[in-house]
Design a protein around this nucleic acid. Structure first.
Lengths: 244, 244
DNA sequence: CGGTTTGTTGAGCCCTATCAAGGTAGGTGG
DNA sequence: CCACCTACCTTGATAGGGCTCAACAAACCG
């Protein structure tokens, strides 16, 4: 359906595969299975066992908790060139999140078997894998930090800056990678609150909002604004849950 | 100072080293460096590079963010038999958290070099390492889940149940692994709120509190109580930060 | 036993969720 | 091309959970 060249290129752009030899990448590429999902289609449910991990070629996937009452909290939005599911594969336990396509999406499934083989006879690959997971872990920790320290406005600004690649200054335009509902969920906000925050930023002349298109008019001022929020009020909060 | 037998035993009880041969463990054990910390002593600051990871033999270590204003949020309390710092070692980046002893603590430092060597000629070890990190990652994800879904009371109850090893029923006694301030921080609460929640649980006859000693009088009822809180109000929240 | 840290209790407030309508945009069929 | 439908998004009013501030009590330590 697609030409294999695209697959190889996609894979070689993954941080994980960064330093593999072409031949190794080709090996992964030829064994990868393509998976096409329509908007809203579910890839796997919470509780599923995975026999590989996924790479997004184009489109976007959301990972979310689903609670019994049907509520959902989006944990992550995975975009083109990113991967997900590695941790579930290594744990050999059911996935704690469900995975659903936010739009027309093409995925590659890298079989567990290939992964293990690669680890077995390329310890540098194993190390890279370890480094990759570690980086995610730290990303999550940052997440937790943002959570506990920041107000809605600060979370939104962090998110936007991150989307834009953490620019130091200037005028930045960007498009939200998903509907505002989904973004709100990812920021742990209600859609109503997101809407209001966006408006207040807009009223303050810091951003322009046009549907999913957002212009940050002056990154420096926006950073200042975020810093000014909730100056040093917090005292002693932290995180809950399991030790890492 | 200590006898090496203790070290070997401590190491072999680590999930990470579970399936290593004795000879391999001994190898780690003889190379491990002992580190003793007094209460309140700082092991490393946020931003430090680590040249190994740490295993707690006895005592307790807290990992926390430190913000410019001097606020701290406890991310994790690492107790005897647990390890920390692996992810930082693999990332080869500065630690995002500081590490401080909560009490008299003995640590083992497992040198990065040994770790890498083990990975290089034992791919099963590499896999276990990967699985270990994956499990932590999922622990953190659960954390995030608890955060976004749960009220103060629910977070506390989850925490207590987890401390007790997630018993299904019965009467459970336990001791808090740290001061209430630290616990509050870990649960992302103010000390005031923790105190109040503890009291309300006590008033409801669900627990007994005596300093750091807590008795859960009926685990089943406590679970019910937690479930009854905030039945299905939430709609669409999620997490912020980096993709994982 | 005084000093210091840790924990408790009370009053008040703010942020953000909730509930409830309305508005807007994009797609579909007539 | 318009009318409708269904998401998606916005706006307003209200309320509540947990934080803040402040003072006091208790426990720990030297």
């Amino acid at each position: 359906m697609d030409n294999p060249v695209d697959i190889t290129q996609t894979l070689s752009s993954l941080p994980l595969f960064q330093q593999l030899h072409d031949s190794e990448i080709v090996h992964f590429a030829t064994d990868a299975r393509e998976i096409r999902l329509g908007k809203g289609q579910i890839l796997f449910q919470k509780g599923a066992m995975l026999d590989g991990f996924y790479v997004v070629v184009y489109g976007a996937i959301k990972l979310a908790f689903s609670s019994p009452q049907g509520n959902e909290k989006v944990v992550s939005i995975v975009e083109a060139g990113q991967s997900f599911g590695e941790a579930v594969v290594f744990m050999e336990r059911p996935s704690p999140v469900l995975s659903q396509a936010l739009e027309e999406t093409l995925l590659l499934l890298i079989a567990k078997q290939n992964l293990f083989t690669a680890i077995d006879h390329d310890s540098a690959f194993a190390r890279r894998m370890l480094a990759g997971l570690s980086i995610r872990l730290h990303g999550l920790i940052e997440d937790v930090e943002h959570y506990s320290l920041r107000s809605a406005t600060q979370r939104l600004i962090s998110f936007l800056l991150q989307l834009a690649g953490a620019p130091e200054s200037g005028l930045i335009e960007l498009a939200l990678p998903a509907s505002k509902q989904v973004i709100a969920s990812r920021l742990n906000l209600t859609p109503e609150t997101l809407s209001r925050v966006l408006h207040s930023l807009s009223d303050s002349g810091l951003v322009t909002v046009k549907g999913r298109h957002i212009t940050m008019i002056d990154v420096i001022k926006i950073r200042q604004y975020a810093d000014a929020q909730q100056p040093d009020t917090e005292k002693q909060r932290g995180t809950s849950g399991v030790s890492w």
